[in-house]
Design a protein around this nucleic acid. Structure first.
Lengths: 147, 147
DNA sequence: TATTGTTATACTCTATAACTATA
DNA sequence: TATAGTTATAGAGTATAACAATA
């Protein structure tokens, strides 16, 4: 196989692997009563450093308008509270509740569950790490987000 | 960083990379007048071996009901034709048209465009291929699809 | 005038269930 | 009765545009 074919195959398999990961995470999140997007949102909220909704949208690389529905659900589930910022009453600070902390910890566990790579030796894993880093550092001008 | 943290980081970065690839592909498909799902559907259709819609759904790992809308758009764009199978009039065979062939070739090019990995040497690329293969072969019971 | 959060709206993707025409 | 394709419907995710409150 030529270089292009090889590279294309690697990209295809990586896409397959991450699709598999997303699928497993989705079912795990559902067991927590969260949709994948809501889980990601909760995960981005640091319980010790509350954020305005606008910053959460930035972290999720999505429009602010989407955050409203996401936070609606998290708030309804008692995991997050909206508090109007006294310093700037336009902003609403998103505060993770006690329950929210616990669920967020579980979300973090699910997200860092890497049974996917269990078949690799420590050395192979290190090598893979180096290669993936090299690609993700130098690979693209804009790794994500709108153009 | 411990092994779990390392593995989680690799998974996270791979997800980031494939999200980036999907994003670039999405914009390329849009320039062809296709949504990502429609592009994938067209890509799965072999111009030399027409398929019934049911088989396309199988290849896309999605419900048959979705194929209808997908093929609607492809047909409207003149890329695909529905032909009732004379041998079993329930089935509709999906035939890629002349225009469809050309667009499908472009879709295939976009899908195998791997500028993402341009920064790797041939040797590194080979190593990455081996590692990704090892993971994707032994990694998971069900690589995709419903449970 | 500019910004924050919200609402209204629309489109894509996907799934389930019911319908039709065939077999 | 079983299957192929369709339709209707629903929900998640994401985007744009307009709006109210605030700066």
């Amino acid at each position: 196989m030529d270089r292009d074919g090889l590279a294309a195959d690697v990209v295809r398999r990586m896409a397959h692997l991450t699709a598999s990961v997303r699928h497993r995470q989705g079912t795990a999140f559902a067991e927590l009563g969260l949709t994948p997007a809501a889980a990601r949102a909760l995960h981005e909220l640091d319980p010790d450093h509350p954020l305005p909704a606008r910053d959460l949208a930035d972290r999720l690389s999505c429009d602010r308008s989407n955050v409203t529905a996401l936070v609606d659900r998290l708030e309804q589930a008692g995991l997050v509270e909206r508090r109007t910022d006294p310093a700037d009453r336009r902003q609403k600070t998103l505060v993770v509740t006690g329950d929210g902390r616990a669920v967020r910890d579980r979300v973090a566990e699910v997200m860092s569950d890497s049974r996917l790579l269990a078949g690799l030796t420590d050395e192979e894993l290190g090598t893979l790490r180096d290669l993936v880093w090299k690609v993700s550092d130098g690979g693209l001008p804009e790794p994500c987000g709108p153009e």
